[in-house]
Computed example of a mutant assay.
Amino acid sequence: MPATLVVLHPASLSAPLSRTEDGVIYEASPCQACGVAGGADWIKVDGTGVLVHNARGRERCPVAAPFDWETGKPLTALPEAVAA
């Protein structure tokens, strides 16, 4: 027997609230590798992908493995130019 879907909201939904509106609280997720609070981003530095902590001035995560940005293959050692 086919399922019958019931339309609960016949009108189109409005756009989501902006993160800049009053009353909205933004909480950054913890680092995916080490769990430190404050959010993290993958960035490209001289062709190498590294994970950085945003709350600490884009400090490189000491746990996350760097990778070749083009291929996605993990690197065993961090290149000198990216280590600093």
Rank of each mutant, 00 (worst) to 15 (best):
K73T: 11
V63F: 10
T71Y: 06
L13A: 14
L5Q: 11
I43E: 15
P66G: 04
I25L: 05
A3Y: 13
G47A: 05
L51T: 05
A33C: 09
A81W: 01
R19D: 05
N54L: 15
P2C: 03
G39Q: 11
V50D: 06
I25G: 00
L5E: 13
D22N: 09
V82K: 05
G49W: 00
A84Y: 00
S18F: 03
P74N: 11
A84F: 01
A28C: 04
C34M: 09
L75Y: 07
P2I: 06
A65V: 10
P2F: 06
R56T: 00
G35P: 02
Y26L: 11
E59M: 14
S12C: 07
D41H: 11
A77G: 01
G39R: 12
V24G: 08
C61V: 03
K44Y: 00
E70G: 00
G38W: 02
V63S: 10
D41V: 01
W69Q: 10
S12A: 15
A28M: 06
L78V: 15
C61S: 05
H53N: 13
D46V: 04
S29E: 14
A33K: 02
F67L: 05
S12H: 10
R19P: 08
I25Y: 01
C61W: 03
L5I: 13
V6G: 02
D22C: 00
T4L: 13
G39V: 07
H53V: 12
R56D: 05
G23N: 04
N54C: 12
R60A: 01
R58M: 08
P66Y: 03
E80K: 15
S29V: 05
V82G: 06
P30W: 05
R60E: 01
G47V: 07
D46R: 03
L51I: 02
S12Q: 13
C31T: 05
A28I: 01
P79G: 01
L17Q: 09
E27Y: 11
P66V: 07
L75G: 09
A33P: 02
G72W: 08
L78A: 08
E70C: 00
G49D: 07
A37P: 10
S12Y: 07
P62D: 09
W42G: 01
K44S: 08
A33E: 06
V63T: 14
S14H: 12
T4W: 04
T76N: 07
Y26N: 06
A77K: 14
L8P: 00
K73E: 15
K44A: 07
A11S: 13
A81Y: 01
L5T: 10
K73V: 13
Y26V: 13
A11Q: 14
H53F: 12
C31R: 05
G49V: 00
V36K: 11
P66H: 06
V36D: 04
G38Y: 02
T71P: 09
V52R: 10
